[in-house]
Each structure stands twice: as structure tokens, then as C-alpha cells.
Design a protein around this nucleic acid. Sequence first.
DNA 1: CCTGTTACGATGCGATCGTATTGCTAAACG
DNA 2: CGTTTAGCAATACGATCGCATCGTAACAGG
Lengths: 198, 198
Amino acid sequence: MPRIVDHEERRAEIVLALWLVIAEHGIEGVSLRQVAAAAGVSMGRIQHYFGTKEALVLAGCNALVDNAYAGYQETADATPRDRLLHVVSQQIPENDAGRIGVSVWYAYVAKSINHPAVRQVLAEARRGAEDECARLIRAGRSDQGAGDEADGGACDPAALEQARRLLALADGLTLRVLVGDLEPAEALATLQAEVDHV
Amino acid sequence: MPRIVDHEERRAEIVLALWLVIAEHGIEGVSLRQVAAAAGVSMGRIQHYFGTKEALVLAGCNALVDNAYAGYQETADATPRDRLLHVVSQQIPENDAGRIGVSVWYAYVAKSINHPAVRQVLAEARRGAEDECARLIRAGRSDQGAGDEADGGACDPAALEQARRLLALADGLTLRVLVGDLEPAEALATLQAEVDHV
DNA sequence: CCTGTTACGATGCGATCGTATTGCTAAACG
DNA sequence: CGTTTAGCAATACGATCGCATCGTAACAGG
């Protein structure tokens, strides 16, 4: 049989180029030729690994949420409060790399409005993040508050609403930082105050 | 001279068709032909009134913020608290018309990331909304709290940060409702609680 | 009535798009 | 040492794009 290459690595290279194109020209600026040029490969290669533009864009979306999840799992041995702060403030861009990542993320968010497949991927990720945040909030409470340990699922809805509030606030602040209306430090300070207030 | 038509009315018709196309296919689905078909007019007409696709899209953005501002001014004789609630929750979609409006708004938000002209329009609108919210917050405080009336611009930054928090939270909640993760009633309840808490 | 200008509709053009197709090349296997 | 097949590069193709251009119909002013 013929020569074998690392399939996943090739795909990752192309997806990275896709993200660069999205960050620079938005999702409407994505064409196979542009991505191929950014990756320094031929159009044929992209077709070989993704088949269709639609599949490429969707793969880029999945890779994005996989990346975020991997980043979260690296905080496995931190305190619940710190992990919560990480989830909530990870998307605040602090450098150029962060700006690229979050601008790509927002591009997908906008696309999800009219694109069911993208919407499903993002909705699943969002639900996962909310559940995880709710868990962290409960864990943080039972850490310090030594009063009532008898809760198992009773205060669940309250914690989940708190999680939703936190994540929604983070989304809104992220957008302002991304557009340049807000300094990253201010957004982080607001989020930190909110996390500590919970 | 030749026949005279209502310039603004023609433009408004075309902009409305533009919004419909954006709401249905996203901003990447906008083409002069699509908008012309949605408006039931010829491409030539759009070219006549807007010249360029770029100008059309930008006009649609300006019309959007003008609309929102007009809606706000209709609440001129309400209490500060109610006006604040209006500004913050106006974008939560409650019916299909609202969904169209807010999905168009989010499409522009995403475009603003890579498009300086759109960004400037939205940034200006956002700053106006924040200032107005800060004013309403101060007004609401001096209404009930009869203690310290000696503030003029001293508690300004605090009120402005509160305004930013509120609007960012509203953006995040709006997005969740738009994508279908959250019921409009839940988002409104969260926002109302937050407004009353201020 | 004539004329000049606005308000378009219709059409053409070059560029770019996604995708299907073709064919070569390098390497694993018998 | 073929033979086979994955891994591409190259290109062709039809569709669609924004925009420029051209032609015409309607109508206000002289």
C-alpha cells in the first residue's frame, strides 16, 4: 500500500489555516482557495481531507470546542473557585493569539444562528460548560460554608442559574473587549468580582 | 425635471428586504440579487439607491441602531427603572419579528469584528446605551435613596460599570435565547432581578 | 411641445466561487 | 520487481458574484 501520513496532523494544519482566515476576513471570507493559500498547500489537499467546504467549516467548529475543553482539563488540580474563574475568563483575549481564537469563536456563534449543525455543536458545548460551572459553584460553596452539607440536588437550579448568569456575562464582556470598547483587565476584574460574589 | 419619488421610503423598503435576507441566510448569504428578489425589485434599483453592496450593508446597520433609538425614545415618560429595564431587555426576542431583528443585530456584531465601519457604528451606539443606562441608574438611586444627594459625577464610574455589567449580561442572555438554549421568560426574569438589585 | 434629468430595468463582463475530474508520484506489499 | 493504492496537484466547469453600462420611460420646467 502507498505512503502513510499522519491524518490528524494534516487536518490540524488545515484547520489552523482556516482559523487564521476566519480571524482575518470573517467567515464570509472563507474560501477553499484562501484557506489553501494560508496553509501553503493546494486546494486538492483540502478536498482530500475534508471533501467539502461545509465539512471543513464544521470540523473547525468541533476543533474549537475540543481545544477549549482540553484547556479546561489542564486545570484539574486547581481549587473549584480557580477553575470556575478559568472557565469564565478563558475567552477574554489577552494577547493576539487569544484575540484570534475568540474572534473565530464569535464568528461561529454568529453562524450558528442560521446553521443548525454549528448550532448543535455550540449548544452542546455551552450546556456542558454550564453544568460544569454549576458543579464548581456547588463545590466551592460546600468548601467554605460549613453549615449545610445536606444538599445534593436541591440547590441545583439556583447554582445552574448562577452559572448561566456568569457565562452570559462573560460572553458580553468578551465581545466588548474584542471590539475594543473594553480593556481586558477591566473585564477580568468584573468577572473576578462576580465569581467571588457567588 | 423627472418624476420625484420618496427617496427615504424606497431606501427603507430595500433595507427591510436586506434584513430579511440576513435573518434567513446570515450576512454571508447577502447578495444584491437576493435582496432584490426579497424586495421584489430589480438589481438596478438597489444600485441606484445605494450604489454599492458595501454601502447597502452599512445603511442597514445604521438603520438598525436608529430603529432601536427610536424605540427607546418612546419610553420617555416612564420611570427610570422601567426605562432601564426597557433598554436592557428590548433585544430579548419574544416573537418572530423580534427574532429577526435581533438575529440581524448579531450578524452585524459578528461582522463588526472584521469591519471597521460597522464596528464604529456599533461602538458608538453601545457607548450611547451605556451612558444612558448609567444616567438611568443614577436617576433611579436618587429617586429612592434620600440619603446622599450630593453626588453629581462622583459615583459616575460605579454607575457606568453597573451599566456595562447589565448590558453585557443582556447580550449574553440574548444570544442564548436566540440560539434556543434559553426561554425568553427566563432571560427576562434574570434581567429584571438584576435591574431591581441595582 | 420640447427638453433635460431622474428613476429605473435589462444585460454584459470579468472575477471568484465550490466541486468534480484527471493523472502523476511515492511507497508498502506480494 | 512489479503492482497497487493512498496522497495529493492541477485543472476544467458551471454557477454566482459585484458592478459598469446602456437604454428607456416618466415627468417637471422652459
